[in-house]
Each structure stands twice: as C-alpha cells, then as structure tokens.
Nucleic acid binder design. Structure first.
Lengths: 264, 264
DNA sequence: GAAGCCCGTTCGGATTATTCGTACAGGAGA
DNA sequence: TCTCCTGTACGAATAATCCGAACGGGCTTC
C-alpha cells in the first residue's frame, strides 16, 4: 500500500485548463459554461474562474451567441511554432515543388505521442479536395506517414507502438501485428509507405520519412490522392519523387539554418 | 483604500502557464528550463513542475538538443479552431478566387484585443513572397484590415481604439488622431482601406471588412502586394474585387451552415 | 584531473491559491 | 408567472501551490 505515488507532480490546474480547451475544441458550435462544468466535472464556480482566465488570455473567446469557442491566442502560438520550426521552413519549398511535380495534395507530419500531426498542407491545384487540415492527428498504423515512420523505428519503440491495439478504419486497414511487421519490411525495402485505402476508402497516399542522421526520424511527408487518380502503377511512378523530396528536406536541414537571418 | 479589488479572480496557475508558453514562443531556437525560470521569474522547481505538465499535455516538447519548444498540441487546437470556424470555412473558397483574380497574396483576419490576427493566408502564385504568417498579430492603425475594421466601429469602440498610442512603423504610418479620423472617413466613403506602406515599406494592401448585419464586423480580408506591382492606379482597379469578395463572404455566412453535417 | 558551472531533478514544510456549495440577477421559453 | 437556463459573486475549509536547498550528471575551463 505504501507505493510511491509521487508521480512527478504535474500541475492539476494547468491540466484542467487544457482539458477545458479540449472540451471546447470538441464542440464545433461552441459550448456554454454550465455544460463545460458538467462535462469536467467540476463546480460551476470553479469552471467559471478557469473560463474567465482563459478568456483574459485569449485562449477562449465568446462567439456571437455568447457561447465559448477556442481563442485566437492558440492560433498565435501555433503560428509561432510553425514559423520557428526548422523542419517546417526547410520543407515548405520542397512540398510546393512536389505538388507541382505530382499535381496532388502534399502533407508534412511530425510524430507526437504515438500519432502523426499534420503541420503543413499544400493543396493540389485539382478540384477534388481531400478532407484534412493542419493540426489533425492520424494514427500510425493506417497512414502512409505513420507506416513510413514505424519502418524506421528501433526495436523497443516499434514494440511499444505495436502494443497499442489498432482500430480498423476501413476494410484494408492492417490490424494484425504479423501482417504489419511484414508490411513494414516491404516499406523498408521500397523506401516508401503506401496507404492503400487503409485510412479512408477511395484515398491512396504515399509517405516517406525525413531522416536526420544524428537525431533519427524528424517527420514524414505524404502525397494523397483519390484512388481513381492514383492507380497502383501511378504509385510506382510517383514514389521516386516522394523519396527524393524527403531526402531533399533532410539535406536542407543539414545546412546551418536558412531562416530570416542576415548572413554573417 | 477599501476599494474592491476582487478582480473577478483569475487563476494564476493557468496565467503563468500561458506566460511560459509566450516566453517559449519568443525564443525561436528553444529555451532551457533554467532560463525560463529566470525570465518569469519563479523558482526553478516551480517552473519545472509547470514545464513537466505542459510537456505531458503536448503544449511543449523538447527538440533534438533537449531545449524547450512549443508543442504540437497547440497546432491541434488551432486547427480545431480554424476548422470549426464558420467565418474561415465561408471565406476559404472566396479567398482563393480573389487570389486568382488579383494574382496577389490574400489574408483573412479577425479582430482580437485591439489587434488583427491572421487566421488564413492564400499565397500569390508569383515569386515574391511577403513575410507574413497565420497567427501573426498586426496593429489596427497601420494595416488595411485594421483601418477597415475601425472605419465601421461605433463611437465608443473607436474612441477606445484611438486612445491607445500609435507606434510609427514607417514614414507613412498615420499616428495623429485627427489625421486618422479623416483617413477613416475616406475608408467609409471608398468602402476599402488602403495601407500605403504604412506598416512596411514597399508593401501596399487593400482591406475590406466582413459585416454581419446582426453581429457587426466579423473580420476583414486584405490583398497584399509589393508596391512596385501595386500602383495607386492598380489599387483602384483591384478595390471592387476586394469589396465584392468581402460581401460574398458575408453572404455565405448568412446561409445556415454549410459544414459537414447531414441535413435533418 | 579537478574545480567550476549549468543542466534537469527531487524532497518537505509553510504559505497560498484553489475548491466547493450556496446565493443572486437576468433572459428564454412554457 | 413560473421555471429553467444562462453567467456571476462570496466565504470558509481544503488542497494545491510555492520556495529553498540539495543531489547527480554532463560540459567547459583552468
């Protein structure tokens, strides 16, 4: 019973604040204070104090109807993150070039907590738009970027990643562990991962990992297209462009830092 | 002396957490825990607890060198905000069309706390890129969007906005209050605001406000271009397109909500 | 090699801010 | 009018926070 429960002491107030932000984020049309307090659950007066604080900070705002919505402070912080991120800066021109080469939508993703978070998106000039957005989280096992990242993982990291149960998103989603290990071996050989309608029916993606020789996998890129436009033959054609784009990003990262600095 | 100082009780913990995030955001190359503690200033152990919490939540992360950087949780929240924002959704196709019409970079901004925050940006296909990013804050008095918003303000709101001192960004920045009121009158007559190198030398912008008849000004759009490409004559030519684009966005907002909902 | 420095981390007690229940005012709908 | 919801305010008991000090590890400097 005398187990050490110190748990490295996290601040419950801050955790609760972000829990509130998550709840607000999950309510597309905003939410009322009382509903928030009931969802946490916490006393209404306590929730009120948090909400007032977050409103002051700009992390929350009230919409026209007075309901609570996420605030622009979050956009400012995310913008500062993306602007200062070397990976983002190095990838941006390469992503545009890849869109020009393939004519399809391109994403840049960063691994985070067993998922991949989209941090950049360059739209295809073609009319059919895919439903995705910067800031979206996708699982590792059913995305091209995720499989490309897993293929380069070390033993223990991969075991940990595969320990989580894989939810079946479509008929083609690979849930079996042995099948996934075989798939990852194919990815290692090919240098690209193919999401063959495993995350969403009618959408195929090619993903390649951005490798820093010192720090390992920094992120991944992917090309996404409707399956009607992206046949298996076309996948094979596009693959080299994806691989070389990922390598080009890694190459640019090697150079000092080509940001908005004056050269000494 | 017995003044009521209740101050509506904001949570100091949450405020401090966001203060830390701001400090991290201000350090482009990351920051160390000790430097953070010194900057707040707070005891290192206290800062450590906040940092651990924010790391757990994904609001902070450690880069390859172990320094603290903003975390992807912020990108997720900002993405949820922008994805669920009706204004953003309604404006997006219109912004692309405006870029196609003008060939210049277009922004969507939302007023927040006496500033304008960029929430969308559609890049010009032309090579000269402007330095701006989603999430950036610009002052009201020296931006086309800001002046367009002020021109539609009520008496007391405008007085409050003009009460703040205006910093001079370039030689053309309007700092005098009388001059600004005259400028806003011109904006009201023209229907567009022109930033004539008032925020940055060599950059001209046209801004128009998005007006909801019920809720007032919801935001503004702007077209930005190098002054070399955007002469005063061209401003006059482009102005109608900017105005009608802003009106079109307002019109689309009037309709129920064209989001990914099934109609009942 | 050793001193020094800064890194991140842990612990415990005094202080502080937080928490909760309750209570009040206003608007919407029945 | 009555009810139910909204958001807001106060006060006392509680629980979390805060600080200082101390430790081990990696790095440069002398």
């Amino acid at each position: 019973m005398s187990e050490i429960v110190t748990r490295s002491a996290t601040s419950s107030s801050v955790a609760r604040a972000f829990e509130l932000l998550d709840l607000v984020a999950a309510a597309p049309d905003g939410i009322a204070l009382g509903q928030l307090a009931a969802a946490v659950p916490t006393a209404k007066s306590t929730t009120h104090r948090y909400v007032m604080t977050l409103l002051d900070l700009g992390a929350l705002r009230r919409d026209a109807r007075g309901r609570l919505t996420l605030g622009l402070k979050l956009v400012e912080l995310a913008g500062a993150l993306l602007d200062g991120d070397d990976l983002h800066a190095a990838a941006d021109p390469v992503l545009h070039e890849l869109v020009a080469q393939t004519g399809e939508t391109v994403h840049l993703g960063i691994p985070s907590d067993g998922h991949v978070v989209y941090v950049a998106k360059v739209e295809s000039p073609q009319s059919v738009r895919l439903v995705s957005r910067v800031g979206a989280r996708v699982a590792l096992h059913c995305s091209a970027m995720g499989k490309a990242l897993m293929a380069r993982m070390g033993e223990e990291s991969l075991d940990a990643a595969l320990a989580h149960p894989r939810t079946s998103r479509t008929v083609h989603t690979i849930v079996d562990e042995t099948a996934m290990r075989a798939e990852l071996e194919k990815v290692r050989v090919a240098g690209v991962a193919i999401d063959d309608e495993e995350n969403e029916l009618g959408v195929r993606c090619l993903g390649a990992v951005i490798v820093d020789p010192r720090a390992g996998s920094l992120g991944a890129i992917s090309v996404s297209a409707p399956a009607a436009r992206m046949s298996h033959e076309r996948c094979a054609e596009v693959a080299p462009a994806v691989i070389s784009a990922a390598e080009e990003i890694a190459r640019r990262l090697g150079r000092p830092i080509p940001r908005s600095h004056e050269e000494s």
